[in-house]
Design a protein around this nucleic acid. Sequence first.
DNA 1: ATCTATGCAAAGTCTTTGCAGTCCA
DNA 2: TGGACTGCAAAGACTTTGCATAGAT
Lengths: 145, 145
Amino acid sequence: MAHAPIRLDQFETYLKDHGLSRTKPRRVLYRALASAGPQTAPQLITTLGSEMDRATVYRTLDFFLVNAIAVRTTDGHVELGESFRPHHHHLVCTICGRSQAVDDQILEGALTEAAKRQGFMLQTHQVELAGLCSKCQTLSKSVIQ
Amino acid sequence: MAHAPIRLDQFETYLKDHGLSRTKPRRVLYRALASAGPQTAPQLITTLGSEMDRATVYRTLDFFLVNAIAVRTTDGHVELGESFRPHHHHLVCTICGRSQAVDDQILEGALTEAAKRQGFMLQTHQVELAGLCSKCQTLSKSVIQ
DNA sequence: ATCTATGCAAAGTCTTTGCAGTCCA
DNA sequence: TGGACTGCAAAGACTTTGCATAGAT
């Protein structure tokens, strides 16, 4: 999964502007989410175990969620909020749980048009897609046949 | 939370048509989800603990998810899938709060195509749109100018 | 009759919590 | 310095797994 450059200074500014403490664990977790995308707590613990305690991962995750620095996705992963990454939606595989980002201008346009057909001027939207990824499509076929 | 009548026969038919076993625990879990709406595994275990084993709750939940009988929501709850409750999206006006249903085949097609572009076969989706309804667009213009 | 699903019980993970020490503003 | 944050360690909650039995087609 490709990601935009890590805007660590944007994060620091955000904390400062909101009167929140800037600590090492918060920076570490922010970098992890910015560079590796949506992850679960256990995944982050595995990756960051040497840099911060498990309890701190959970507490910092809660802190991020409460302060809108991150959001939870349909499949239980956590990712940076809208302010810290480009706008996109999710596509989750219902079998293997793999999740990938959708950044699709055609889809964005379709949403705007659909709203317009009903007389609305679209301001915001949330979209969650779920289905079978290419790998699981193949696997389920071979099982069924 | 108000819910549509429990279509247990629809569920039975679905299982039969897909060559899946119809068992008591599956019926119990289905009724629980149909009558009480989205719930977490622990909640279901508390409620149904006397009727089925914890392990069975988890296994049946997985079974429901894999077979698209249920889906997972953003906050980690599980609810019945599209086939077992009316499909609809919402369009909410951010000023007057008026909400209307969206039943737009073009939009549905656009979602399917967007998933396909990433190699996914779309099974379910959730869409929430928000913006200004025609009336409030007019009103806000007259206020601004 | 065969194959699948369930219950039981135990093991394995994940998450939360209390407290003492450390770091930030 | 004072208050907030972190690490450590233990407790608690959640989820998964193996195996024998019961149930479904």
